[in-house]
Amino acid sequence: MPDSTEQTIVVNADAAAVMAVIADFERYPEWVSAAREVTVLDTDDDGRATTVRFVLDAGVLRDTYELRYSWSPDGRAVEWDLMKSDLQQAQHGRYELAQLARGSTKVSYALTVDVVVPMIAPLKRRAEKAITDIALHELKKRVEA
């Protein structure tokens, strides 16, 4: 898969609180603007989601897709890969959290998306940057609310 787009943001909360919001998929429609429906399909022995279906509506872009998640043992990172999609042929993403000080966490978000329709690289990178930027700001707003 090609190089990913990565952005970071500092959230005024501990890493555990940030990860709790990231991991609460079924509440995404409450705070992720494009999420219309999110359903956890499978979980691991610890109750963490391993397969999740998303129904997204971002205006001109609508997609239903499933992602497979893997969680780091220390609870500070989660990665995902596309299983199936209406519009994407590949997606890989990762959230990684770094506790900076008590009540402050650096959140890094890396994302690579390949869509079925051919897209020139600069336009694809711009779209990934917009997605990561919106996702980080919505996450920050939700965690700090």
Rank of each mutant, 00 (worst) to 15 (best):
D74E: 01
T64L: 05
S85V: 02
V38P: 14
R36Y: 01
E138H: 11
R48H: 08
T39S: 14
R68D: 03
E26I: 03
K106S: 15
Q89S: 13
P29N: 01
L41H: 15
T105W: 06
A58D: 03
A145T: 09
M119K: 11
L67Q: 11
D63C: 03
H92M: 03
T64V: 12
F54H: 15
G103K: 06
S104N: 10
V60T: 05
V116A: 09
L56K: 10
R126L: 15
E26S: 10
E138P: 08
T64E: 04
L100W: 10
V107P: 13
R102D: 15
R68I: 04
R48V: 02
P122W: 00
D14W: 03
Q91L: 14
I134A: 15
R126N: 07
A15I: 05
G103P: 08
V60Q: 06
Q91Y: 01
T64A: 05
A23P: 07
Y65S: 13
G47Y: 06
D46T: 07
E30N: 10
E144T: 02
R142E: 11
K106P: 13
L136R: 11
Y109G: 07
D74R: 09
L136W: 09
E96F: 02
Y95N: 05
R36T: 02
R76S: 10
E138R: 07
A16H: 10
K84V: 09
R62C: 09
T64P: 05
A90Y: 04
E96A: 05
A58E: 01
S108K: 13
E144V: 04
D45V: 06
L56A: 12
L82W: 04
L82Y: 02
T64F: 01
V18Q: 04
A121L: 09
A17T: 06
V78Q: 11
S104F: 07
